[in-house]
C-alpha cells in the first residue's frame, strides 16, 4: 500500500471512464432515434398522473398525440390552465378554455337511508357484489358502498363518508372519470362545476318499491316537474331528471316540497 497505488487507481478509472463515455457517445450518434423535441417539453407540462382521462395510455402517449395533431390540449382535464396555454403555445394553437368538470355521486343511499337486505359475505368490492346479488343494501340501483370509486381515484379526491357513501372533494377533483368507470351501477357522473342542482337518485322502480328500499329515493311524485312548469324537471320512467338546458334557476331548488329530499344543491355557487 503506497502512494503509487492511488495514481494507478486514478489512471485506471480515468481511462475506463474515458473509453466507455467515448464508446457511448459514438453509440448514441449511430443509434439515435429522431424524436420531436416538443414531445419532451409537453410531457413536462402535462400533469404526469397517467390517469388516462384523455383517452391515451398516459401522459407520454398524450404528448405524442398532441404533437401529431390527433388530440387537443383541452382533452386533458387534469392539467391546470397555465400549463394548457403553454402547451397550446408550443403547438402553435389557440387556447380554448373549457369549463372544468367534476364528479357527482347521484345517490344518497348510505346505511342510514337504505334498508339492509342481506348479510353479504363475498368479495368486498362493488363490482363483485353487483354481479352476485347486489350487496348488502336493498336498492338495486343505488350505492353499494365498498369503495371501488375511492380506490380508482388517482387524485385522492373522493372519500367514503362514515355511513358508507362516497363524497367528492370538488376542489381536488380533476374530472378524469376514473370513478365514473369504476362504479358498476353508473351512479357517478361528470358535470360542469357550475351545475349545482342534482337529483341524487337513480332508482327507476315503481314508487312503492322505491320508497320501501330507501328513505331518500325518488318516488316520481312529479312535484318538481309541476313546480318548474315542465321546464327544467321532468319525470321520466319513474325518476325525476334535470334538463340543464332549460333549468337555469341554479343554484336554487325548484321546490322545498320534494317529499324524500332527493333533490339537493351540491357545492357552492361561484366555485371554479
Amino acid at each position: 500500500m503506497d502512494i503509487s497505488s492511488i495514481f494507478y487507481a486514478i489512471i485506471t478509472m480515468g481511462v475506463l471512464g474515458f473509453v466507455f463515455s467515448a464508446g457511448l457517445s459514438i453509440a448514441s450518434k449511430k443509434l439515435s432515434v429522431k424524436e420531436d423535441p416538443r414531445i419532451t417539453k409537453i410531457i413536462d407540462l402535462l400533469p404526469g398522473a397517467n390517469c388516462g382521462a384523455c383517452g391515451y395510455a398516459g401522459c407520454a402517449a398524450m404528448a405524442e398525440a398532441l404533437v401529431s395533431g390527433k388530440a387537443e390540449p383541452a382533452n386533458c382535464p387534469v392539467a391546470n390552465s397555465e400549463n394548457l396555454s403553454k402547451i397550446a403555445e408550443i403547438l402553435g394553437l389557440e387556447v380554448t378554455e373549457k369549463e372544468r368538470k367534476v364528479a357527482v355521486v347521484l345517490c344518497q343511499g348510505d346505511t342510514n337511508n337504505q334498508k339492509k337486505k342481506a348479510e353479504y359475505l363475498g368479495v368486498q368490492t362493488c363490482l363483485a357484489a353487483h354481479l352476485v346479488g347486489g350487496g348488502p343494501r336493498a336498492c338495486n340501483w343505488g350505492c353499494i358502498g365498498y369503495g371501488d370509486c375511492i380506490r380508482a381515484c388517482p387524485f385522492d379526491a373522493i372519500h367514503m363518508s362514515e355511513n358508507g357513501l362516497p363524497v367528492v372533494d370538488r376542489e381536488k377533483c380533476t374530472g378524469c372519470g376514473k370513478c365514473v368507470e369504476a362504479c358498476p351501477r353508473n351512479i357517478i357522473e361528470l358535470h360542469p362545476i357550475s351545475r349545482h342542482v342534482f337529483v341524487l337518485c337513480k332508482n327507476r322502480d315503481n314508487p312503492k318499491l322505491a320508497r320501501s328500499v330507501c328513505k331518500t329515493a325518488c318516488i316520481s311524485c312529479g312535484i318538481c316537474e309541476r313546480a318548474t312548469g315542465g321546464k327544467g324537471f321532468k319525470v321520466i320512467n319513474n325518476l325525476a331528471e334535470v334538463d340543464y338546458d332549460l333549468y337555469t334557476k341554479e343554484p336554487v331548488l325548484p321546490t322545498d316540497k320534494c317529499p324524500t329530499k332527493c333533490i339537493v344543491i351540491v357545492g357552492n355557487p361561484g366555485e371554479t
Binding site: 413536462d44 407540462l45 400533469p47 404526469g48 398522473a49 392539467a79 400549463n83 387524485f155
Partner: peptide
C-alpha cells in the same frame, strides 16, 4: 414536472 406535488 408534475403539477400535483405531494407533501414532504
Amino acid at each position: 414536472m408534475s403539477s400535483f406535488k405531494t407533501s414532504l
